[in-house]
Structures are given as structure tokens and as C-alpha cells.
Design a protein around this nucleic acid. Structure first.
Lengths: 144, 144
DNA sequence: CCTCAATGTTTGATACGTCAAACAATATAA
DNA sequence: TTATATTGTTTGACGTATCAAACATTGAGG
């Protein structure tokens, strides 16, 4: 409520605008959506994990995760199977095809992000990451 | 493509995640979506402007702007009329009701953003705004 | 054992973006 | 002035997120 609220409010606006500016361009440049690539990226690191675990790290709704993974399965990028120890949970893993394809996606992504961050110095990047993460933590607290 | 790409890629991920964390909470806290409030906010400042002008400043697709404004008109927040000098353009303005309602929305928004930026110092805010705006400018350049 | 709660996943309804194509209305130029 | 390009807006098809409700499946307590 203090005098700096105008600039604070601006931040919320810019974040929204930035997302919608980036999102379609990211997909056109890399050939895959940010969400999908993020899912694949975590599978790449994790071998085989449950959907819920995956859902929590990518901050996407369960329903959306289910739909993404179904389509990624249909396109041969991931495998899904029930956990024999607990038939409620679905375990997901990358296929060989997925594992190899992700490498080229990553290249495109890196190029894209490099463009996005043109003019940023090496010192600025960690500052930015830190601020964004702090906002994320704050966001998690809001409205239980 | 250099060694800092991991941290760069992280930024793209966080931006996406942050948007989806914020967006529903913003609406629940304030009673209006970010996009709508941003549209109203600009109308508040601008008196009467054309849809296209408005669309350009908020970085939302024309189609989405049309739909938002139609609904805001239906709910009595804005007026729309054809420009008599050029019947192609639609001029939009706030109604009295809209003008008064926006004040309470703003209060909620400011509270929300204050929570989002908890722990940020006065010096950090302009740094953050600057970085976000630079990303926006870079994003505009990508893939003409 | 057999409810009943908890956990994981899925489905359905809704909202809001994008793009492309359709429709004006206006400018331009032959 | 009449065909053609340009500009502003709208509509339709689609993707992807949210929430809430429906379905398993498993665990725990009487």
C-alpha cells in the first residue's frame, strides 16, 4: 500500500505479458511446448517417477499432467505403467526415442533462452533467478 | 550454448511456472483476472481509446481483447462505440461503475503484489522491473 | 473382515490465450 | 470510379491451464 505499489503492480503485469509473449514463440522455435519439455526434462533426470511426484516439481495441475503424458505416450516419447506395489500410482519414464529427441529440443531451447537473455551479464543471471525463485516461494504461501 | 545455459533454461521454466502459480490466485484474491484488470487500468488512464491501441499496450491477442471487452461491456464496466470518423474502429471507455469499481480492485491487487514481493528491498524492485522489461524487449525481437 | 478415510489419477466443465480466416470499412491507384 | 490493398474487428478451431467431481486402490480402526 505504500508509494512503490505502482512499480510493484507493474511487475505482476509484466510477468503475465512476458509469459504470453514467450509461450507461443518458444513452441514455434523449439517444436515443443514449454510444459512438455519441462516434463520430459525431469523424466530425463529422474529415470522413472510417479505422475504425482512429477506434477509437484513442474507446478502443473494433475489434470494437465495426465493429459500431457497421455499424448507424449501416444507419440512414443514416454512409457507409462502401473506401479506393481501400488496400483494407484502411474510410473512414467522416457523411451529411447524420447531420450534422444530431447537432446535436439534442448539445443533449440538453449538458443531461444539465449536470445531472450541477450544483453544480460553473467552476474545478472543468478540475481534474476534468485528473485524469481523468491517470488515463487512467496506465491506458494498466498491464500493457503 | 555456453556453460550458463542450465541457469538460463531455468529462467524460462520459472517464468512459466510463476505465471501459472500467480494467475489463479490473483483472480481469487482480487475478484478479477489479471488481463481484465490490466485492460481496465489502461482505460482508466486513457479515457477513450481504440481496441487496437489498447491491444498493443497489453500484449494480448486481438481476439482475446474483443472477447474481454464484450464481457466487460455486458457487465456494465465499459462502453463501446464506433468511431464516427472511421467506422472500422471501436472506441472503448470506462463507465462510471467501472471507474469506481476499479479502485477496490486495485486495493486488492496491491495487497496481492505486496505479498508476492515480500522480502524484496526497495532497491531490488527497480532492478527486477528493468530485467523483466529487457526480456520483454528481447522477446519482441524473437522470430519477427 | 469391513467400513471409511486418504491417496493417485482421470474426466468434465470452464476460462483464456493463439492463429487463421472471414468481414467490414477505408485508402489508394489505375 | 472501380478494383485492390490495408486496417480494425470478429468468429471459429484448437491447446492448455484451472477446479471440482468421479473413480480406483490402498490403509487403518472398530
Amino acid at each position: 500500500m505504500d508509494h512503490s505499489c505502482a512499480s510493484k503492480a507493474q511487475i505482476a503485469y509484466i510477468l503475465r505479458e512476458l509469459h504470453y509473449q514467450i509461450s507461443p514463440k518458444f513452441e514455434r522455435c523449439t517444436g515443443i511446448s514449454q510444459s512438455r519439455l519441462e516434463l520430459l526434462q525431469h523424466l530425463y533426470d529422474a529415470e522413472e517417477i510417479s505422475q504425482t511426484t512429477l506434477q509437484k516439481v513442474v507446478h502443473i495441475d494433475n489434470a494437465a499432467v495426465t493429459r500431457h503424458l497421455k499424448q507424449l505416450e501416444a507419440s512414443g516419447m514416454v512409457n507409462r505403467r502401473k506401479n506393481p506395489q501400488d496400483n494407484r500410482v502411474t510410473l512414467v519414464s522416457l523411451t529411447e526415442q524420447g531420450r534422444s529427441k530431447i537432446l535436439s529440443y534442448r539445443k533449440e531451447r538453449d538458443q531461444f533462452v539465449t536470445n531472450l537473455l541477450q544483453g544480460f551479464t553473467e552476474k545478472e543471471l543468478p540475481v534474476l533467478v534468485d528473485m524469481l525463485q523468491r517470488m515463487q516461494q512467496n506465491a506458494e504461501q498466498i491464500e493457503g
